[in-house]
Nucleic acid binder design. Structure first.
Length: 117
DNA sequence: CGTCTGACGCACG
DNA sequence: GCGTGCGCCAGAC
């Protein structure tokens, strides 16, 4: 459980929930973990996530503009785009097309106790 | 302990 | 609509 208490672990937990063919934003993930202003931390966690064992769809996380700002962190500059297109997400000019349609909003983690859909 | 950086986001001009 | 500056939070040096 302590793992889930770590900021990074929370980010990973949310990112892992992103369904294929969908994308979300750093700010949305940050808000989901209770730190709406920590969007930068989310991206930073993604970079570090490459060291994280296990599959982490970091390519499904883009900035609020739908731009693939983190593509440079992948083995190849076009890896992120190819992964997205492979899942059905159209990308043009390092930017997600129909971003609003493929956008997936993560479930906000209630730090309280109960209250859940 | 002080300072800089960073896959962001927003306010301001 | 675009460029610039500041704030957020956590880690590295």
């Amino acid at each position: 459980m302590s793992e889930n208490n770590d900021f990074f672990s929370r980010v990973y937990g949310v990112v892992k929930l992103i369904p294929a063919g969908r994308v979300t934003t750093y700010g949305a993930v940050a808000a989901a973990i209770g730190s709406p202003g920590a969007a930068r931390m989310v991206g930073w966690a993604m970079n570090k996530a490459f060291s994280h064992t296990g599959y982490l769809p970091a390519h499904r996380v883009v900035n609020r503009n739908g731009m693939l700002t983190g593509k440079h962190a992948f083995p190849n500059a076009n890896t992120m785009q190819e992964l997205l297109e492979s899942e059905g997400v159209r990308v043009k000019n390092d930017k997600v097309m129909d971003f609003q349609k493929v956008f997936w909003a993560p479930e906000v983690i209630d730090l309280s106790h109960h209250e859940n859909s």
